[in-house]
Design a protein around this nucleic acid. Sequence first.
DNA 1: GACATGTGTCAGGTTTCTTTGACACGTGTT
DNA 2: AACACGTGTCAAAGAAACCTGACACATGTC
Lengths: 130, 130
Amino acid sequence: MSENPGPAQGPELTGDALLKVLTALGNPHRMRIVAALSDGRDYVSRLARELAIGRPLLHMHLQRLEAAGLVRGELELSEGGKAMKFFELTPFCYALTPEVVARAARTLTDEGKDDKGKDTEKNTMKETAK
Amino acid sequence: MSENPGPAQGPELTGDALLKVLTALGNPHRMRIVAALSDGRDYVSRLARELAIGRPLLHMHLQRLEAAGLVRGELELSEGGKAMKFFELTPFCYALTPEVVARAARTLTDEGKDDKGKDTEKNTMKETAK
DNA sequence: GACATGTGTCAGGTTTCTTTGACACGTGTT
DNA sequence: AACACGTGTCAAAGAAACCTGACACATGTC
């Protein structure tokens, strides 16, 4: 939907990034979240009802997906003034082949396991809601 | 590197199958195994030395990769008569997009988690919403 | 026989992931 | 105020994944 430049991360794909995507997608709930979000954006509480899972749980899964760059959340205000966090899919596109995996594997770092060091600069939220 | 025919499993891809692939690939060791195997086939003990991990551990990882259909092992006899298990890559090719994941997610079964399978039973959780 | 190589499996400890039930805020409505 | 709805977080339990050090079995060589 909407304008979206071609994602197509052909050339460079770090092992840590791919690993994060794979572990993010490698979970039944998170796959279902992607499926639900493919029908359009939605906010957390409603999504939780839809998927019949707890809000804290969904929150964690969404966080994981967002950290992998697969979904994107945005806090908005409804007419009523209530803060609602809407999530929508990122139009990702990864080609999973032996060559891609092999190439990515060579750039794997131990840091990847806990994502520190390199701050990707994307620091969403941290409550500006005052 | 032999040439691979077009795998391209476009039409049918069950959620359980994709999930298995994703969880299989979503691990640093297994990614490195794929990388090592992309240089050509190898047998377990040598691979373990190469990757500097224990044999039992490698054995488990290879099993996981094989269960996902990403590698294939074959027991052969060397000249000496020793039994050696050679592993080689399967030329897989998965396109990872929101649509593919969404579609696969709809065919996810609870059985997938432990691979029991042949049950024609539709066991759609007994979860009662709170 | 003792050794080095290959195979596989098992029990167990460690770590990480998953899940749940509180709790602490906000808001608008009854 | 009490309620219904939204947001987020936390601690702790439970489950699953990961890893290691044995052990078993083969074979060929010193």
